[in-house]
Write a protein that binds this DNA or RNA. Structure first.
Lengths: 243, 243
DNA sequence: AGAATAATTAATCACTCGGCCAATTAATTT
DNA sequence: AAATTAATTGGCCGAGTGATTAATTATTCT
């Protein structure tokens, strides 16, 4: 599964900068331009059923379009998926980098592990807490990618590595004696915890018999921050004591 | 996606307890009975490409069989998947319960969070560390199921809830003042960390530039135990301080 | 041995898949 | 208004898809 965001003109018909051009009927109500509608619908269906679980026909029907239009705007089912994935990646990256920078500025020399992790998590968990279905579907997509065995590692690395490096650099200031391996292993656990939350399964609801609800971000967020911060400190403090 | 392990006779041809019957050619070398070969091959392909990414023909070819044989033994592609998932579930559950019981017996009143978590994780991480490809593929399958948005919650609950309840009960003995919500939320993070490790992506390898390798269970295990234990203690100690 | 049952093959069914294209309508440019 | 370009339709293609079946071979039972 490649991840190239855009491809040059496929072969025959060259298509100019797609998307609605000025002077259109001004799209009434919930109806947007077709290209955007396809992206939204594909995002939702890919999140629910995975790449191979969705057909271009299903996407077309849900977007009130034809399969021809999907190939007209995106050339290929794979390219459509890549476009969906790429669309929001820059947004979330920018917000996270801004949050980390803001925290770094405000904390001065008093950087804490809790503060760094909170800045790292909050922008994403905010999207989860907000009612926006588009963002929620996108987060599910990220969680899927993170656990995809064939192209997951590559996609996640390309999309989110810079932010992670930034987080680790910040935590390193709070834990000056930490070794690189410990920092990365600790992040591995944090990342796993976050990805499971983004997947928005109802597992925790079932397991806890309703005591916890997966979408209760207000309850989840402080506990995930506390859990991960304590984990980081412990792993990076001790000299890797074998259990 | 249903998860019923077996179905009664489909419709026409009733099939008696499948599987090789005694008195067979004694299966030379790596060649096993066909039913088992199909299960192994399906396990590997489902782990690599997901349910919808695999065709019955691909499974048949890899198992040196025909699609007819797949339906002869398993009736349906879905039933084959369920059979793959169910095959090893009992084994890992039994080992985990035994490990938890053994620890509980040995620890007496001195139950620690670290000890309980170690008993919970070790049987699974041991499968990951061992060279057995069959088990490794199965663990990838579990990680996929845990993040599947449509049937993930149900499958995981049915398959692994008892062991988790056992773990939480044990941790509760080490943290008598812990509240249920905190215990479940903390387990949520632990579960996420474990699932990401089971997915066996090369993300951590890339991110850490080779400092950490995802398959280095000897390095992962003590850190995951330490991380989660510290997290549990912290989350369950404080009165849910908002960040 | 022969009868009965299990395992296996190869062919086939009715659909669905992603992708493509000629033709048509709508908008923009000159 | 005419010419040009963009957006869109509907039908079609060849290649699979999961599933089924009759016929054949192997094995077990009596």
């Amino acid at each position: 599964m490649s991840t190239a965001t855009a491809r040059s003109a496929p072969s025959a018909r060259a298509k100019r900068p797609p998307g609605p051009r000025p002077g259109r009927p001004a799209a009434a109500l919930a109806e947007a331009d077709l290209r955007g509608r396809i992206l939204d619908v594909a995002e939702a269906l890919f999140a629910k059923h995975g790449f191979d679980g969705v057909t271009t026909r299903a996407i077309a029907q849900a977007a009130a379009a034809t399969t021809g239009m999907i190939h007209y705007y995106f050339t290929t089912k794979q390219a459509l998926f890549d476009a969906v994935f790429a669309r929001r990646a820059d947004v979330v990256n920018a917000e996270r980098l801004a949050a980390l920078s803001a925290y770094e500025r405000d904390a001065g020399d008093a950087v804490t592990v809790e503060g760094a992790i909170a800045a790292f998590l909050r922008p994403v968990l905010a999207k989860l807490a907000a009612g926006d279905d588009g963002w929620r579907n996108y987060l599910i997509l990220i969680a899927q990618a993170a656990h995809n065995h064939e192209w997951g590692g590559a996609v996640m690395t390309r999309a989110f590595d810079p932010v992670v490096e930034r987080l680790i650099a910040l935590i390193r200031r709070a834990l000056p004696h930490a070794q690189d391996a410990d920092l990365y292993w600790a992040y591995y656990s944090l990342s796993g915890a976050l990805m499971l939350a983004l997947a928005q399964t109802d597992r925790i609801d079932r397991l806890s018999n309703g005591v916890c609800r997966a979408m209760d971000v207000a309850a989840l967020e402080p506990r995930m921050i506390a859990f991960a911060a304590a984990g980081f400190k412990r792993v990076c403090a001790a000299p890797t004591q074998p259990a």
